[in-house]
Amino acid sequence: DETGKFLVLALYDYQEKSPREVTAKKGDILTLLNSTNKDWWKVEVNGRQGFVPAAYVKFL
């Protein structure tokens, strides 16, 4: 159920650099879980949760 969740689009490829991050490919649609940090947003992609740089994604 996606009610109340926001989707964001990956603008660039991002390769995770730590276990707390997730890899995303340009064009991926990610479920935004938390955007309270202006630099790192928590997302879910391909069943995995983790952080990506906020500058790499935008709201749909």
Results as ranks from 00 to 15, higher is better:
1 D>M: 13
1 D>K: 12
1 D>A: 13
2 E>M: 14
2 E>H: 14
2 E>R: 14
2 E>I: 14
2 E>Q: 14
2 E>A: 14
2 E>T: 14
2 E>G: 14
2 E>D: 12
2 E>K: 14
2 E>L: 14
3 T>F: 13
3 T>E: 12
3 T>D: 11
3 T>L: 12
3 T>W: 12
3 T>V: 12
3 T>Y: 13
3 T>I: 12
3 T>K: 14
4 G>C: 15
4 G>A: 11
4 G>M: 13
4 G>S: 12
4 G>L: 12
4 G>Q: 13
4 G>E: 11
5 K>F: 13
5 K>P: 13
5 K>I: 12
5 K>E: 09
6 F>Y: 12
6 F>I: 15
6 F>W: 14
6 F>A: 11
6 F>V: 15
6 F>N: 09
6 F>T: 13
6 F>E: 07
7 L>A: 05
7 L>C: 14
7 L>P: 00
7 L>Y: 15
7 L>K: 11
7 L>N: 04
8 V>N: 01
8 V>T: 02
8 V>Q: 01
8 V>A: 05
8 V>M: 07
8 V>G: 04
8 V>C: 10
8 V>E: 00
8 V>K: 00
8 V>F: 08
8 V>L: 15
9 L>H: 02
9 L>P: 00
9 L>G: 00
9 L>D: 00
9 L>E: 10
9 L>Q: 09
9 L>F: 10
9 L>M: 14
10 A>M: 15
10 A>K: 03
10 A>S: 04
10 A>Y: 06
10 A>G: 02
10 A>L: 15
10 A>N: 02
11 L>R: 04
11 L>G: 01
11 L>N: 01
11 L>C: 12
11 L>D: 01
11 L>S: 02
12 Y>M: 11
12 Y>G: 03
12 Y>I: 09
12 Y>V: 09
12 Y>W: 12
12 Y>S: 06
12 Y>L: 09
13 D>G: 06
13 D>S: 08
13 D>T: 07
13 D>P: 06
13 D>A: 06
13 D>R: 04
13 D>W: 11
14 Y>W: 10
14 Y>E: 01
14 Y>C: 12
15 Q>L: 13
15 Q>K: 11
15 Q>W: 13
15 Q>A: 12
15 Q>R: 09
15 Q>C: 14
15 Q>D: 14
15 Q>F: 15
16 E>N: 05
16 E>S: 15
16 E>K: 14
16 E>V: 05
16 E>H: 08
16 E>Y: 05
17 K>E: 06
17 K>Y: 04
17 K>I: 06
17 K>L: 08
17 K>N: 09
18 S>A: 08
18 S>P: 03
18 S>Y: 06
18 S>F: 06
18 S>L: 07
18 S>D: 10
18 S>V: 02
19 P>C: 12
19 P>E: 11
19 P>V: 09
19 P>K: 09
19 P>I: 10
19 P>T: 09
19 P>A: 10
19 P>W: 14
20 R>D: 11
20 R>L: 14
20 R>E: 12
20 R>F: 13
20 R>C: 15
21 E>F: 08
21 E>A: 05
21 E>S: 06
21 E>K: 04
22 V>W: 03
22 V>N: 02
22 V>G: 03
23 T>Y: 05
23 T>V: 03
23 T>C: 09
23 T>P: 03
23 T>L: 05
23 T>K: 02
24 A>E: 03
24 A>K: 03
24 A>L: 15
24 A>T: 15
24 A>F: 15
25 K>H: 10
25 K>S: 08
25 K>W: 08
25 K>A: 07
25 K>F: 10
26 K>A: 13
26 K>S: 07
26 K>C: 09
26 K>Q: 09
26 K>I: 08
26 K>P: 05
27 G>A: 03
27 G>Y: 05
27 G>D: 04
27 G>L: 04
27 G>M: 04
27 G>R: 03
27 G>E: 03
27 G>W: 06
28 D>C: 11
28 D>M: 11
28 D>L: 08
28 D>Y: 08
28 D>E: 12
28 D>P: 03
28 D>H: 04
28 D>Q: 13
28 D>A: 08
29 I>T: 05
29 I>E: 01
29 I>D: 01
29 I>Y: 05
29 I>L: 09
30 L>V: 03
30 L>F: 06
30 L>N: 00
30 L>I: 07
30 L>A: 02
30 L>W: 04
30 L>Q: 02
31 T>W: 12
31 T>F: 11
31 T>M: 12
31 T>S: 06
31 T>D: 02
31 T>C: 13
31 T>R: 13
32 L>K: 00
32 L>W: 04
32 L>M: 03
32 L>C: 07
32 L>I: 09
32 L>Q: 00
32 L>T: 00
32 L>N: 00
32 L>Y: 03
32 L>S: 01
33 L>I: 14
33 L>V: 09
33 L>R: 01
33 L>N: 00
33 L>E: 00
33 L>Y: 02
34 N>G: 06
34 N>V: 09
34 N>F: 09
34 N>Q: 08
34 N>C: 13
34 N>M: 08
35 S>N: 12
35 S>M: 14
35 S>F: 12
35 S>W: 15
35 S>H: 10
35 S>V: 09
36 T>C: 15
36 T>M: 10
36 T>Y: 10
36 T>Q: 12
36 T>G: 09
36 T>F: 11
36 T>S: 13
36 T>N: 12
37 N>G: 09
37 N>K: 04
37 N>H: 10
37 N>E: 08
37 N>R: 08
37 N>C: 10
38 K>I: 08
38 K>V: 09
38 K>M: 09
38 K>D: 09
38 K>R: 11
38 K>A: 11
38 K>G: 09
38 K>Y: 06
39 D>E: 11
39 D>R: 13
39 D>Q: 11
39 D>N: 12
39 D>K: 13
39 D>C: 14
39 D>W: 15
39 D>L: 14
39 D>A: 10
40 W>Q: 00
40 W>S: 00
40 W>L: 02
40 W>Y: 05
40 W>G: 00
41 W>P: 00
41 W>K: 00
41 W>E: 00
41 W>I: 07
41 W>Y: 09
42 K>F: 15
42 K>Q: 11
42 K>T: 06
42 K>A: 08
42 K>H: 11
42 K>V: 13
42 K>I: 13
42 K>E: 14
43 V>W: 02
43 V>N: 00
44 E>M: 09
44 E>T: 04
44 E>G: 03
44 E>R: 06
44 E>H: 03
44 E>S: 09
44 E>Q: 08
45 V>E: 00
45 V>P: 01
45 V>G: 03
45 V>N: 08
45 V>L: 14
45 V>I: 15
46 N>V: 04
46 N>I: 04
46 N>L: 09
46 N>T: 03
47 G>P: 01
47 G>L: 05
47 G>C: 08
47 G>N: 05
47 G>Q: 03
47 G>I: 06
47 G>K: 03
48 R>M: 07
48 R>N: 05
48 R>H: 06
49 Q>G: 03
49 Q>W: 08
49 Q>P: 04
49 Q>L: 07
49 Q>S: 10
49 Q>D: 04
49 Q>H: 07
49 Q>K: 09
49 Q>A: 10
50 G>M: 05
50 G>N: 01
50 G>Y: 06
50 G>W: 07
50 G>D: 00
50 G>L: 05
51 F>R: 01
51 F>E: 02
51 F>K: 01
51 F>A: 01
51 F>Y: 14
52 V>S: 02
52 V>Y: 11
52 V>W: 05
53 P>H: 06
53 P>M: 09
53 P>V: 11
53 P>L: 12
53 P>Y: 10
53 P>W: 13
53 P>A: 07
53 P>C: 13
53 P>N: 04
54 A>D: 01
54 A>E: 02
54 A>C: 09
54 A>F: 07
55 A>Q: 10
55 A>W: 10
55 A>R: 14
55 A>F: 09
55 A>N: 11
55 A>T: 11
55 A>G: 10
56 Y>Q: 03
56 Y>L: 15
56 Y>D: 00
56 Y>C: 15
56 Y>A: 13
56 Y>M: 15
56 Y>R: 02
57 V>I: 09
57 V>Q: 01
57 V>H: 00
57 V>N: 00
57 V>W: 04
57 V>A: 00
58 K>C: 15
58 K>V: 14
58 K>W: 10
58 K>F: 10
58 K>I: 14
59 F>Y: 09
59 F>M: 14
59 F>I: 15
59 F>K: 10
59 F>D: 05
59 F>H: 08
60 L>P: 02
60 L>C: 12
60 L>R: 02
60 L>H: 06
60 L>N: 06
